[in-house]
Design a binder for these strands. Structure first.
Length: 441
RNA sequence: GGCCUCAUCGUCUAGCCUGGUCCAGGACGCGACCCUCUCACGGUCGAAACUCGGGUUCAAAUCCCGAUGAGGUCACCA
């Protein structure tokens, strides 16, 4: 039996989108599972729309995801192969040169059309089962703009055959195109690969995920830039359209390879839902070591934020984010900025509920007093808490702790006062308490 | 519009092939409560679905037919 060979064949006309990533993943997994070969083929026959940087980006994105390929090819470097095939088709009477009247700029006066025999094609699709299509209404479709310029369907068929692709795993949008490819395939005397048409990756409105319609948030680039982990993305995408039939949700790449099974692929399209991605990403962030987390935090946080403080509040940050890009969003929203600069008390009430100003000042002064008794070397959240806890319990935790916390943060919502105090240090804590007292006096 | 595909909680889905164990299971999200000075985390509990109509059968989410709905595709794009 032939060695299992799959391929991912994107065209470099834009960013790699999430549907494409899943297609790549499934192809990769199926090849690896069967000790086969995974081909990455850049489909750049449309010279007008291709751009080299997109091709480079595609390769880079796949590498970042860890979806390594065994064979790399570019259609633009294979023109001779296509030319030979076109000649062969014409010589054998399966295709002919046709005179045309161009209706748009760039169109040729002569193109190569396939001579359609109008037969019924029956496809055995792994995920869809048997699909029968009458190819009559395809007419004599165009397969090349000229002998040197093959069109998509022709190039795909030739490449798949010559590269020994055994399994064509691609999105359902190609199901309708399959009959015409099979026609070309048969005319060229190639054997037919196994087809598996994957359910579509849908947007919230249930239509096919597309950049034009749904914006940047459909491209891998967006998630990469937002600090999502490559493996979390793969794990998330894996589960849209496939599942192991158990309740398991997390898989290492090795487990994916071992468990993946084309016959368990879903038929219905699946909506790309970010909440679940966030949850999976968070799960993997929590699995990282502190050092690993730090590398990402450092990379995704603007330089102006003090790294020493950033390190101190690492676990707090990790607690609040689902992707590393969220850190900047948090800071941009004004959250946690009290770790980096003095708070202002202008838009916040320092006193707790209906506690009087007098009493609040008393509490703040008491906090100041007991905190000043802590030896600087012992300055830590636990010690700080211990030093004011009894007093707070006696006089009402809200009445005491709220003003202390607001004095330190200038915010109604924040991390607890003990942690904040321990992070900003004894001197700064003292200074902020003093400022707060001054502010309400 | 022609052709093709699909149809279980808001979303991802298990179950469907091999009808009964399903007044339909899990997860995300959501809600409530607990924890708690606030926020977040965490814990507990909860609401939430078999598109509709026929048929087959003692019995249908599961099989058959039809309707409806949704999506895809019909380029000298891929």
């Amino acid at each position: 039996m032939d060695k299992v060979t799959t391929r991912f064949a994107p065209s470099p006309t834009g960013f790699l989108h999430m549907g494409g990533v899943r297609t790549a993943l499934y192809n990769f997994l199926y090849a690896r599972k069967n000790n086969g070969s995974f081909v990455l083929r850049i489909e750049d026959t449309d010279t007008a729309r291709n751009r080299e940087e997109w091709a480079t980006g595609l390769v880079d994105d796949l590498a970042w995801l860890g979806l390594s390929h065994d064979v790399f090819a570019k259609q633009s470097e294979r023109t001779q192969v296509y030319r030979d095939a076109v000649k062969k088709l014409i010589d054998s009477g399966h295709a002919y040169i046709s005179k045309e009247t161009p209706t748009e700029a760039g169109q040729r006066e002569e193109v190569v059309r396939f001579k359609n025999q109008n037969k019924v094609v029956t496809i055995q699709d792994i995920v869809r089962g048997e699909v029968k299509v009458d190819t009559t209404d395809l007419k004599d479709f165009i397969i090349a703009r000229s002998i040197n310029e093959p069109l998509y369907h022709l190039a795909v068929v030739i490449d798949d055959a010559l590269m020994g692709i055994t399994h064509v795993i691609r999105g359902e949008e190609h199901l309708s195109n399959t009959p015409r490819q099979i026609l070309i395939q048969e005319a060229l005397g190639y054997s037919r690969p196994v087809y598996a048409h994957l359910p579509l990756m849908l947007a919230n409105d249930k239509s096919k995920l597309s950049k034009r319609k749904h914006g940047e948030a459909v491209s891998l680039t967006f998630y990469r830039a937002s600090g999502y982990l490559p493996h979390a993305i793969l794990n998330f995408l894996l589960l849209i359209g496939w599942n192991p039939g158990t309740d398991e949700e997390f898989f290492t790449l090795e487990e994916m390879v071992k468990r993946f099974d084309l016959t368990k692929v879903q038929k219905g399209g699946g909506v790309f839902n970010v909440e679940k991605l966030n949850w999976i990403n968070k799960h993997y962030i929590l699995q990282m070591t502190q050092e690993e987390q730090w590398e990402w935090i450092d990379r995704f946080t603007p330089k102006e934020y003090n790294r020493e403080m950033l390190r101190r509040i690492q676990s707090i940050l990790i607690d609040r984010i689902s992707a590393f890009g969220d850190i900047q969003k948090l800071f941009d929203n004004g959250e946690f900025i009290y770790f980096f600069k003095n708070p202002s008390y202008n838009n916040v009430s320092i006193a707790w509920k209906d506690t009087s100003i007098q009493t609040t000042i008393q509490h703040l002064q008491e906090a100041l007093r007991s905190l000043s008794e802590i030896q600087n070397v012992r300055w830590s959240a636990d010690v700080i808490k211990e030093s004011i806890w009894d007093y707070a319990e006696q006089h009402g935790k809200g009445a005491v702790l709220w003003p202390v916390r607001v004095a330190l943060t200038g915010s109604e919502k924040s991390v607890d006062p003990f942690t904040v105090a321990s992070c900003i240090g004894q001197e700064e804590t003292t200074s902020r308490l003093l400022n707060a007292i001054k502010h309400i006096s």
